[in-house]
């Protein structure tokens, strides 16, 4: 795949806009919101993250990543025109068909917006098939907010409710959004819980504290959906490292409901 555009989201987060080099592959490639890919920089290795763009917009693929380890650092060094490898799509996806006709709440923290964004765009492209849409997004500081343009776009739309928050201490003098941790903002916002589905993604600690809030608000455990993350290598359910109990996150995940997660050994 060829890197078509490099967007620097935050000092350490980058978004790539990618296009297939082979038009045949481009035609046959399709995926569903929530699936992930194995991106590779040849000579450095492979790295797993979700496809951040919506399957309804196939002219390009997008992925966002935070510079952390060997491969993400190598990715961050790439320029427009460079080639990367992509295997995928792997894993399961958000149950978008079952979500139709319901209220949808999206809750994301930090780089966790990337997988959620995929489904948000997907839902927004089919806006009339869903009821109320609420997006709650938080990051450590204003500088750490990703997809700033998109956030602005969402906030300007009248048919969705978008709340952006930063952790206390992360605000700038001219910050106009909310200040506070995601779980408490969720509680304050109190989105409607009947006939609703919530999609949550963010750092483990945020997910952990958001779950009780959601149950308190009256969400059914089956309707709380999150995407898990584990160290993965093969993406094919072979190499064994993403294994939690009976499931392979790369095959049976990454999308799990709260009910499913409670049944798993608490090892993630």
């Amino acid at each position: 795949m060829e890197v078509k555009e490099v967007i620097t989201e935050t000092p350490d987060t980058t978004t790539f806009r990618l296009q297939f080099k082979d038009p045949e592959v481009a035609k046959s490639f399709n995926f569903k919101a929530g699936q992930f890919g194995e991106y590779s920089v040849f000579g450095e290795g492979e790295c797993t993250f979700c496809i951040a763009s919506s399957p309804t917009r196939m002219e390009y693929l997008e992925c966002s990543f935070k510079k952390y380890g060997k491969v993400t650092s190598a990715l961050a060094r790439l320029n427009v025109g460079d080639t990367i490898g992509l295997r995928g799509p792997y894993g399961n996806y958000f149950p978008i068909d079952e979500m139709k006709g319901k209220n949808v709440v999206f809750i994301a923290g930090g780089i966790g917006l990337a997988p959620v964004r995929c489904i948000i765009d997907n839902v927004l492209d089919l806006r009339d098939q869903f009821k109320d849409i609420t997006i709650i997004y938080g990051a450590r500081s204003v500088a750490d907010l990703v997809y700033k343009n998109l956030l602005k776009e969402w906030q300007e739309r009248k048919d969705i409710k978008t709340i952006v928050t930063v952790d206390p201490g992360g605000e700038t003098p001219d910050w106009k959004g909310e200040i506070g941790f995601v779980p408490s903002i969720v509680e304050k916002t109190a989105p409607k819980s009947d006939n609703s589905v919530a999609i949550i993604c963010g750092p483990p600690i945020m997910i952990k504290y958001t779950f009780p809030v959601m149950t308190k608000l009256g969400f059914r455990e089956d309707d709380i959906i999150t995407t898990l993350e584990n160290r993965m290598k093969c993406g094919l359910g072979k190499c064994g490292r993403c294994n939690i109990g009976n499931v392979y996150v790369c095959k049976d995940g990454p999308v799990f409901t709260y009910t499913q997660m409670k049944e798993l050994p608490q090892e993630f």
């Binding site: 290795g45 492979e46 290598k233 072979k238």
Partner: peptide
């Protein structure tokens, strides 16, 4: 036991 790792190695650039 069948777990494995995947790594890249180069001969040169």
């Amino acid at each position: 036991c069948h777990c494995f790792d995947i790594v890249d190695e180069d001969y040169n650039y």
